[in-house]
Amino acid sequence: MPIEIPKDKWPGKIRTVTLGATAAEGGTRSKTVAIGGEASLPFMHFENPTPNPPLVAIEIKDRKPEDWSPLLAEVWSEAMNDPGAWAKAAEATGADLILLALSVTGADGKPNTPDAAVAATKAVLGATGLPLLVYGPGQVELDNELLVPVAEATRGERLVLGICEDKNYRTIVATAMANGHLVTARAPMDVNLSKQLNILISDMGMPADRILMDPTTGALGYGIEYGYSVMERLRLAALQGDAMTQGPMIVTPGFEAWKTKESKVGEGVPESWGDWKERAINWETVTAVALIETGATIVVLRHPESVKRVHRAIEELMAV
């Protein structure tokens, strides 16, 4: 009995966004990468081709973080003391992008400074040819204070600057617009809030193809289902033609997963959790893959083994 496969026809598609700029384009990256462009739900190759695979970014810091899991400290070891070296090591594991997260304080315990932030950014740009994302420490005033000079010092690189939130987006958007960068717009796990922030940023005159959406997610076991459904709904809205939800989505499963006790620590936890390292990698990988299958375009990870496994999953998922 011949069956007609039900195919969805959508009026909208995900916007194509290009990260990074080569010398010819006014930057210094060895290549640029494009994301987005899908006209179907993730990996429904029987409906439409998937023009660009999802990408894996590795998160590094401008100085050795004190609160990261020993498993991460072990695997990155010495490189953590030097953002340039760390970026190089990250590139060597096969990452597609580097995300540099600026710290609240310097190694001396004093507040981070614009000069230090610019220096760290430049070190990373010098060490790798991959496109770069730079995020502030997540405190309104400090974010603005650090990101503006970073944006100015890297004019034309098409970095992604973050994070814009509904109460603090103007300064970052303005400097990204003035210096040819992109921004990440993060809203707390709500379809409407994600969309609203996109509208606010667009209203400032930022071109839509320079906005990434971070709908926020929880880790496996810590609210992943909310982020999962919000992303599914955003993807559906985008396909239905809602222009303000069509930005590619970036999420941070590495940050979320490594914050959980399951990944972070190996002692004083139930035996039924099994082998620490394998469990931690599974935690990060499962979180990332579940989100990729709901529509994440960039996943930011922390452990090289997860990067490898997620890459392998993406490869399989991209097979037609």
């Binding site: 709500d190 379809v191 409407n192 609203q196 509208i199």
Partner: peptide
């Protein structure tokens, strides 16, 4: 709740 959040905008999230 969803309808409420989408209306927490001027005039509405869905213009």
């Amino acid at each position: 709740y969803d309808a409420f959040m989408s209306a927490m905008f001027l005039p509405h999230t869905d213009m």
